[in-house]
Design a protein around this nucleic acid. Sequence first.
DNA 1: CCGCAACTTGCATTGACTGCAACTTTGCAT
DNA 2: ATGCAAAGTTGCAGTCAATGCAAGTTGCGG
Lengths: 207, 207
Amino acid sequence: MTPPTDDLDAVPPGAGLRERKKAARRLALIDASHRLVAEHGLDAVTVEMICAEVGVSPRTFFNYFATKDDAVLGHRPWSLPEKTAAAFVAGGPSGVLLDDLVDLVVGLVAAPPPGSARMRRTLELAAAHPRLMAHHIAWMDRQKEQVERLVRERLGPAAAHRPDTVTALLLVCVHATLMRWDAAGGEGHVREHATAVVAELRALITA
Amino acid sequence: MTPPTDDLDAVPPGAGLRERKKAARRLALIDASHRLVAEHGLDAVTVEMICAEVGVSPRTFFNYFATKDDAVLGHRPWSLPEKTAAAFVAGGPSGVLLDDLVDLVVGLVAAPPPGSARMRRTLELAAAHPRLMAHHIAWMDRQKEQVERLVRERLGPAAAHRPDTVTALLLVCVHATLMRWDAAGGEGHVREHATAVVAELRALITA
DNA sequence: CCGCAACTTGCATTGACTGCAACTTTGCAT
DNA sequence: ATGCAAAGTTGCAGTCAATGCAAGTTGCGG
């Protein structure tokens, strides 16, 4: 059914067969859902269809994703590179909180390459379907914890700012950056967009 | 079944019987869902239960709310007072964009009294159930359009800032304000919290 | 009191999602 | 290789949210 675009071993760097198969299936499911949604529209696509396309039982589908929408969005836990995280906690590349947030954003957004093409498709779908955007935002919010821990560590106990506010701001940056990146047709490095966003916020707030 | 806490006519200011009944039912459904969720937990509560509690058909339930979660959240389209909106578009109370955002926030949050008690219950539930928080955020995002129009009008064609960025910032403010208000146990005027949030953002960005 | 429009309701249906128990595959050690 | 345990897959049966449709009810204006 599925043209094996992703060869089993084409997917992950190292690790056992089990891992690879799993990752491959996961991507296959995501891609299949994208294809089908593009063709039939989000609501017309059923889990069954996606499974048929990939050749997997519907029951299995839910071993991979909690919901249909999660598959379309291809969500997986965020994880930003150790190095970036450590640097940020230690006082960040620049020492200026806001600027360092940019690096965090870049780390979060640009880091994991489940393929940036895939990511663009995801963003486009999200932009088209409010429900998906909803899920997307909600998911970002869930990742907040993780980020907030970093912020907390960096600020230390004698925090001049409330960590949750900082985090909230960070999430806006991420979101705005992604939207710009998408609006720009996926052109340019994420960093440029992130920088632009922060610059604009600065201008806006000091106005 | 339901102790008629809200008398029919206790609910809305004017208008015909039809309207009043509708509003009353709406609130009854919301309250019933709150009661049931508090007792059994979100996932254990079915639409049927809620309906039984209020004495309406399940089918009717969906004439009032698109989803079960919407009922719990008691969402209805935002509408900020004409006056506030007009003032903002005209250049806002203070003329400083960021400060005027505060007023917008207050207008949005404090304006509609479906009862602030009800609102607190809602926020608490949202805080407890990630899925609800997701819906809540998603819903806020959907209202964005409305707000963004205002921002666009105020900024005019020669916009110094991208409206969507401003709006994004506004939404963070709303969210942060609500969270603080809730964290404070519903104490104090919304405006105080909103002001605090903005002040902090300022400090944070100019640091 | 009549008739329209607004609502409500039951019925039937689809499709997401879950728990369970059996079955298959992979990883690993002998 | 061979065998075993853990990891993963699948079918089945069931619950529940959500929707379209076609008939009832009911508030409202004349």
